[in-house]
Amino acid sequence: MSPWEAVAVFAAGLGAGTINTIVGSGTLITFPVLLAFGLPPVTANVSNSLGLVPGSISGAIGYRSELRGQRRRVLRFAVAALIGGLLGAFLLLALPSSAFDAVVPGLIAVALVLVVAQPRLAAAVRARRARNGTTAHRDGGIALFTGLLLASVYGGYFGAAQGIIYLSLMGVLLSDDIQRLNALKNVLAALVNGVAALFFLFVAHFDWTAVVLIAVGSALGGQIGAKIGRRLPPAALRGVIVVVGLVAIVQLLLK
């Protein structure tokens, strides 16, 4: 890898770490860069997953204030993240690289609709519960756990826009501030990337130079993303999510 290529990979890691912490989809920055510099798709995907782990951890640390009082949720959803991430990592090596291509753009589109409609959907759900005299499950129940498990499988496999999917599910099924949900999203992404990376260390080929460059860049980006993301009001954060999601859909369709 030439010095200029190394700078480009580091910059991609910085951008990915920043955008992952704010919303997600950082893989759509780093993955094409690695492909452009000649890495095979699976090697690029594995190297990318390994490199983004420090960024996910950095983003979660940056959002630590919003994690207060969510210990129960973190422990519950961590199970889904670890199981799903490990299964997704296995599928990456077992299935052809095109396995998710037809599904992912539609999945992101549905997630974006849920993110935009989340305030109205949440209000409608609360009104219905008030009429029926029922209360919400404090952790979203089995529906949210299952949804996060499936999203984590996808995250371990490829992960582009997994943060958007997490936020859409939690936004509809949990009654909480979007910034607190974003903090929880960062923890789940760190767990998925971490368990997938641990699996890849033992069974997959990767490029150590790319991994280190992305790791350093994404760790710095995680702190930048936390500083920016935590200052965004809910409406602005939803706007960023929609813009990033639409860009992700276009990029995936044109790939």
Results as ranks from 00 to 15, higher is better:
A6G: 11
N20L: 10
A36Y: 15
A183I: 04
I249T: 03
W4C: 07
E5G: 10
V23C: 10
S218E: 03
N186R: 08
S49F: 05
I249K: 09
D176L: 14
G106R: 09
A102K: 14
L220V: 12
S152P: 01
W208G: 12
V9A: 03
V172G: 01
S175R: 15
L67F: 12
E5D: 09
V187I: 15
I214M: 06
A161T: 01
L34S: 07
L191I: 14
V172A: 05
A89C: 02
L52G: 05
G229I: 05
G59H: 11
F200N: 01
T134S: 12
T209C: 10
Q162A: 15
L150M: 10
G140Q: 04
A78K: 04
Q118C: 06
A94N: 04
A196D: 06
P32G: 06
G171W: 06
V216M: 11
G17M: 08
V211W: 06
A130N: 01
L14W: 02
V172C: 04
A190N: 07
Y154M: 02
L93K: 10
A89F: 09
T43C: 10
L220R: 08
L253R: 13
V7M: 13
H205P: 07
T21V: 13
I164N: 00
L52R: 11
L107Y: 15
R68P: 00
A236P: 01
I165L: 10
G55N: 02
T21I: 11
S58E: 02
R120H: 14
F90T: 09
L112V: 01
L174Q: 03
Q179V: 14
G194P: 04
G245H: 05
A44M: 09
A127W: 11
T27M: 12
